[in-house]
Design a protein around this nucleic acid. Structure first.
Lengths: 204, 204
DNA sequence: CTTGAATTTTGAACGATGTTCATTATTGTG
DNA sequence: CACAATAATGAACATCGTTCAAAATTCAAG
């Protein structure tokens, strides 16, 4: 059998990613499989290899989509308040996204591309876009300073928050009586921002 | 065939964990398998199920061992300096351990027990022990204060550092030109500690 | 010393998985 | 209408975790 051409290459790509997204949302990333994707769109697994190099590639492109949706969610939180309030809105928006899309969010980090190499540019571009949101929020603290310094602070803070959320999500912070992610995140942000601000006057 | 009884139950347990540790160290956690463990100790895979419930259980016990070794490494860094220096020694010790045992360290977090439930007590006890090291280091900042508050700060800082190290390890912070984990970690620690110290006088 | 119960180990079996590729069915073109 | 290009298939291969009846060995009782 062949060439039903019910769907164009691009349509098929969309259907596959849509199906994969659905399967991950419902059953979680670990149980995602080529065969399930195929059967859920009415194609054989072999067909998927016409469009994606392998499952790694497919998941990476699914993750890129998740980052896109995350950006759409987070960019809405922009407002004209103090740095502290702006950042808190961003943080809350992020936690809401994680809550609403837990399994997709997990796939972002549980997926380890088998090739140790760097991630592709089109993927890093999405991360860059998200990091820019943080840059924008912290920018008032870095007026006229080296932008790479700002970027370093943004990345540090963002990575720190990721650690808290990821460890609480995997129950690895249960040693604390009540490990509320938002509370711990705010603790990190508050102290980090205070430190950031006060160090400006010390270091020059 | 059966009951060679070449090895006692306890010996067998040790051999299995030793083999698993070796396989993870060399080829990484994702390629660990019951069959490989079995063949590397000269037993059939079925035998392993007499001692471990399943692969999940086995890896969890392997991870507990890794936490034990990590504790032995980190407890050596204890010294009588300022909080800042003490913490930096702890941090450097941790990064050295990660460098020297990358694949075992990755297994700690890449392994997701399939049951969503809490981790077993004997596992959490190891995490607790490690967190106590951080508690001890930060303690001078919390003289006579609620120990649960200290614990919250320790966990927050530790989780934050984990986020930085874990994201740099998986190349997910490559959007920063030179994402040196130690530098970013120190950035987080320095600002967090400054914030922590100064907030004490504000909040009372 | 023999018999039989208890216990340890096996490995075939089952249902999965990702991936490959010769084969087939369909389409567009000449 | 025939033929080349192409889309889709699904069997095949090598894996995987896990189960469990069968077999092999030991130990204890008679």
């Amino acid at each position: 059998m062949a060439r039903r051409v019910d769907h164009s290459h691009e349509e098929l790509r969309e259907m596959i990613l849509e199906a994969a997204q659905n399967l991950v949302e419902v059953d979680g990333y670990p149980s995602l499989s080529m065969r399930k994707i195929g059967s859920s769109i009415g194609y054989s697994p072999g067909t998927i290899y016409n469009i994606f190099a392998n499952l790694d590639d497919l998941v990476l492109q699914l993750n890129a989509r998740t980052l896109d949706e995350m950006y759409v969610s987070l960019v809405k939180t922009k407002s004209n308040n103090s740095v502290e309030v702006n950042f808190d809105l961003l943080l809350c928006g992020y936690l809401e996204f994680v809550d609403a899309n837990r399994n997709l969010w997990r796939a972002l980090f549980d997926h380890r591309p088998s090739i140790e190499n760097d991630l592709p540019d089109w993927y890093n571009a999405r991360v860059e876009k998200l990091l820019n949101l943080i840059d924008d929020t912290l920018k008032p603290y870095f007026n006229g300073e080296d932008p790479t310094k700002l970027r370093k602070f943004s990345a540090t803070l963002w990575a720190g928050l990721h650690g808290i959320i990821s460890l609480t999500d995997s129950n690895k912070l249960d040693v604390i009586s009540d490990a509320d992610p938002l509370e711990l995140c705010r603790l990190l942000v508050r102290n980090f921002l205070v430190g950031l601000n006060s160090s400006k006057y010390e270091e020059g």
